[in-house]
């Protein structure tokens, strides 16, 4: 009951946010608009990590790898072979899924800290490739001058407003796909695995396969974010694949609230905006960012959306813990 009540709120909130995002561009300066575009792309990435971190309970430190795979697919295909948007998109997502399929075989043997370490190592492998495979990736100088996508539409994506809508469309697509997945019996099984793996196994679920498929979905959507990221920046370099990027995605999910889908998206936009707006006023912006992280962990360990959810649930006379 409470679950549906909250989802009623959630529906309204989502609708309002969606509407605001849709009508915002004409009222924003072009710089704010590019920050918003950046937030949307990072939101896709954070939501994809949420599938394995929030819903399955596996903290990965290698998620930047999928961003990089998607981005490098676009970079290489469009600058070397003149590939168009759809080809680059398909290749980027496919490559990310294939690599996730290989990495999953290795990483999913472990859980907890060990899973964290293995994904970290695998992420560094992809970073190393980007750094070292110079003939393909141009090393740490990166691939630049990636043209914006050309689609048979009346407007040019080289302009910031049309590209914003492209990113918005990508975000909404990713959001709804992930939302359908987490609400499906499959998604509920993932949550079950997070809560008690042994119980799910006793109930007859194929735990490993569920985790594996979750891992593939996260990789694929992460690759999708990478494709948009490369088009947005017009370049890709190994810096995008660094451990720091993976950690940042993890923090976005933690800040917004893991296992909420909307939370990571919120976390992503907060961090992107904080990073770029605060750094204008002070060179000590990293301190402020650090304080925000610590504040979240101490006062809202379930993240912003998690805290809001607890608060709305506490307001109603019922057991605190929803059955997820």
């Amino acid at each position: 009951m409470r679950e549906t009540l909250f989802q009623g709120y959630q529906g309204v909130v989502l609708g309002v946010v969606g509407l605001l995002l849709f009508v915002a561009p004409p009222f924003l300066s072009s710089f704010l608009l590019t920050l918003l575009t950046q937030s949307l792309i990072y939101a896709i990435l954070a939501m994809s990590l949420d599938i394995i971190l929030g819903y399955t309970g596996l903290a990965s430190l290698g998620h930047a790898a999928y961003l990089g795979l998607g981005a490098y697919s676009v970079g290489i295909l469009s600058t070397k072979y003149g590939a168009g948007f759809w080809v680059a998109l398909a290749a980027g997502v496919l490559l990310a899924v294939v690599v996730a399929a290989i990495f999953g075989l290795v990483a999913l043997r472990a859980t907890g800290v060990y899973f964290l370490m293995i994904t970290l190592a695998l992420g560094m492998v992809v970073w190393g490739l980007g750094h070292r495979w110079v003939s393909m990736t141009q090393g740490d100088n990166g691939i630049s001058a990636i043209p914006r996508p050309k689609l048979p539409l009346p407007w040019s994506f080289a302009e910031s407003i049309p590209f914003y809508y492209l990113a918005l469309a990508g975000f909404l697509l990713a959001f709804f796909i992930l939302r359908v997945i987490v609400r499906s019996p499959f998604g509920q099984t993932l949550v079950g695995i997070r809560e008690s793996e042994s119980r799910m196994r006793t109930l007859g679920y194929h735990v490993w396969l569920h985790k594996y498929i979750g891992f593939l979905i996260a990789g694929g959507i992460g690759g999708f974010a990478g494709v948009l990221w490369a088009y947005y920046n017009g370049f890709v370099s190994p810096a995008d694949l660094q451990l720091a990027t993976s950690v940042e995605i993890l923090l976005m999910v933690a800040l917004g609230g893991r296992g909420t889908l909307f939370g990571p998206a919120l976390g992503a936009s907060i961090i992107v905006l904080l990073k770029n707006l605060v750094s204008v006023y002070t060179h000590r912006w990293l301190l402020i960012l650090g304080a925000v992280y610590i504040g979240t962990i101490v006062y809202a360990p379930e993240g912003i959306v998690g805290a809001l959810r607890q608060w709305t649930q506490r307001a109603s006379p019922a057991p605190l813990r929803a059955e997820t």
Binding site: L35, D140, S144, G234, S237, N276
Partner: peptide, 29 residues
């Protein structure tokens, strides 16, 4: 992102920078 801020928000006439080579490649186009 910072180059965008300089150009679109601060409307600068000219930029001096950046420091590292990979940064220069990133903003050249």
């Amino acid at each position: 992102t910072k180059a965008r801020e300089l150009v679109e928000q601060r409307k600068v006439h000219i930029i001096i920078g950046p420091l590292a080579a990979f940064e220069a490649y990133a903003i050249a186009p």
